[in-house]
Nucleic acid binder design. Structure first.
Length: 612
DNA sequence: AGATCTTGTCATGCA
DNA sequence: GCTGCATGACAAGAT
């Protein structure tokens, strides 16, 4: 039927047909379909004018009502708030809370059967019993009409904002049948319905949705009611709400919602346990975002509460307590506790750091004795039958230069306890990856070779029953290393081996760093060489260009010279031969004609040269 | 089998 | 004198 409507204006009927087709195809035209319809626009214009007139009427009535209300209030000169005049206005005062008045009911008395403003207020008072006396202050501010922007800092200002904004009934749970009936009556006010329709129009038609205010200050009653008899009046964009929120809005107004939505809404209201407090409102108004946020917060809180509930159970971890240089006492205890508490904790340190750190995590120390039991080694063995791999994993000191640097730096900065924190995680990784030699050409064979080689020190350490890991021996800071040595009575051979292990381990890393730097220097020099070659090419090209330019200039100069020479005449009017004479310029700028033959014989220019 | 590469180690110097 | 680091030299194994 829309396709057959008469068309006026610039659009032809075919255009409208096309628009309809596109519109039906859900093609976003960027405007509503009706904007292309002249009749529709005209109708909208008329409706809008009617609405404007009604709005003016309404505002006028509002002003009158404000005056009447203000007559019942007095201005508190201290707070600047309007407070009721006791005792006559006490009931009214109790009826006006910020939450309530921001419902901003549009009360008109155009219809005799409609509720009066006072009746509405009374209804509000019954619906929202005052709970806090601090909210009783009322300020009437009509400038905020239709502005749901509510500032928490100005509750009194907002509390009495009278606006055409739709109102919502209180929570169904809190509404008695009588109140619900009263709400129905209130909502049946034609003026209110019109306002609601306006909101609905905006809600349904506006494609951009200015987000409502912060959830904390949102009035839970700021809802929009779907009206079945929606007018198509195009209104100014007041406060619109995304259409996807409509369902949630519906839920807040059971009586106004379609029957099929009613049960759903009530169920939802019950589900949400809507007290419609300022805190609970966002969950309804922003079903996605706020719920996410709130859930996140709640989740966080829950997490925190979980952690908080966990914390007292778990012994509080203090690195100082857990890190003890004595392997026999607190050292491994700390590691164990960390292993238990931080199974996969990254601790903010790259997991790539210092694969060697993996091995100590597997270390199990007894009280000063040698601690690697066979069962432990079997447990750690990823390659049964290879004793070397056992040692490699336990004493792995394979370093990647970068990793080691970071490990060293971490060790230097954070202390050994942080290293201990990393170890529980790292030792769970694949031993091949732990080697730190993930890059080609370090193959598995090389890794095995490295393990074989490294196992020498490890085997030596085991043979001498050195109760430290090679990793510890190498990477502990000097002070810690010395303290570790002092805490254990080692014989000369053990001390020598430990120092050799430490020396070799550090030197190995140093060699790797040195080679890396060397390669970087080579690469840098190669780059510099390339740039120098490019510079040379550029200079050669520039020189060639300059030579060409110079030749051209010489050619032009010679041409000019000959031209000037041809203009010279002797006393008889004859021209000078360029082969016999030449032009020369003296220091004072004078030009002389010099005979070429005599040029080399005559030294005195003044006698031999004649002015040109 | 020899050349080359990679890596660890030692010796040495320097700070 | 000790320690850490850098680097050349060498060796051993891998490619």
């Amino acid at each position: 039927a829309n396709n057959i409507r008469p068309v006026r204006g610039n659009l032809q009927e075919t255009d409208m047909n096309l628009i309809d087709i596109l519109w039906k195809q859900d093609i976003d035209l960027g405007a509503r379909r009706e904007v292309f319809d002249y009749n529709h626009r005209q109708k909208e214009h008329e409706l809008q004018r009617q609405l404007e007139l009604q709005e003016e009427k309404r505002l006028h009535l509002l002003r009158e009502q404000e005056k009447a209300l203000l007559a019942q209030l007095q201005l508190d000169e201290e707070t600047g708030e309007y407070i009721p005049r006791p005792p006559a206005s006490a009931p009214l005062q109790s009826a006006v809370t910020p939450l309530e008045v921001t419902q901003n009911v549009t009360f008109t008395e155009e219809n005799g059967d409609a509720m009066s403003f006072d009746e509405c207020l009374q209804l509000l008072a019954e619906t929202f019993p005052v709970e806090e006396t601090e909210n009783t202050a009322v300020c009437l501010d009509t400038t905020a009409v239709s502005a749901p922007m509510m500032s928490p800092e100005q509750p009194t200002l907002l509390s009495a904002t009278l606006s055409p904004d739709p109102l919502s009934p209180p929570s169904p749970q809190r509404m008695s049948p009588d109140l619900e009936q009263a709400w129905m009556e209130l909502l049946s006010l034609p003026e209110l319905q019109q306002c609601l329709n306006m909101q609905m129009e905006d809600t349904l038609e506006t494609t951009t949705y200015p987000l409502p205010n912060s959830p904390e200050v949102q009035n839970p009653n700021y809802s929009f009611y779907p009206m079945t008899n929606l007018t198509e009046g195009e209104t100014n964009n007041v406060n619109v709400c995304p259409a996807e929120f409509m369902n949630t809005f519906n839920s807040s107004v059971p009586s106004m919602a379609p029957p099929d939505n009613l049960s759903q809404m009530k169920a939802k209201a019950l589900q949400l346990n809507t007290d419609f407090t300022a805190e609970s409102f966002p969950d309804i108004f922003y079903p996605n975002t706020i719920l996410e946020e709130s859930s996140g917060q709640h989740g966080l809180e829950g997490h925190e509460s979980d952690t908080m509930s966990d914390i007292p159970i778990k012994p509080p971890f203090t690195p100082v307590d857990n890190y003890c240089l004595s392997p026999g006492d607190g050292f491994d205890r700390g590691k164990h506790s960390l292993t238990a508490e931080l199974p996969d904790s990254d601790s903010g340190i790259s997991s790539n750091t210092s694969p060697h750190c993996s091995s100590p995590g597997k270390s199990v120390y007894g009280d000063g004795s040698y601690l690697y039991s066979d069962s432990d080694m079997e447990e750690m063995d990823h390659n049964p039958g290879s004793a070397e791999s056992d040692y490699s994993e336990m004493f792995s000191i394979n370093f990647q230069p970068d990793d080691l640097q970071s490990a060293i730096s971490v060790s230097a900065v954070t202390g050994p306890q942080q290293q201990q924190e990393k170890k529980p995680k790292l030792h769970k990784t694949d031993p091949v990856e732990e080697s730190g030699h993930n890059n080609a050409p370090f193959t598995k064979d090389k890794k095995r070779r490295s393990d074989v080689r490294l196992s020498r020190d490890e085997q030596r350490a085991k043979a001498l029953k050195i109760p430290f890991t090679v990793d510890m021996i190498i990477n502990l800071p000097v002070d810690d290393f010395n303290e570790l040595m002092s805490k254990h009575r080692l014989n000369e051979a053990q001390l020598a081996l430990v120092r050799d292990i430490r020396r070799r381990g550090k030197n190995k890393v140093a060699a790797q760093n040195c080679r890396k730097r060397k390669m970087e220097n080579i690469v840098g020099l190669e780059g510099e060489l390339d740039s120098l070659k490019e510079e040379k090419e550029r200079l050669l090209s520039e020189r060639s260009q300059n030579t060409t330019n110079l030749k051209e200039m010489k050619r032009q100069l010679n041409s000019l010279y000959l031209e000037v020479f041809s203009t010279l005449r002797d006393e008889k009017g004859n021209t000078y031969s360029p082969s016999e004479y030449s032009l020369q310029q003296s220091t004072n700028g004078s030009i002389f004609l010099v005979p070429r033959v005599k040029k080399t014989l005559i030294k005195s220019k003044d006698n031999q040269m004649s002015p040109a």
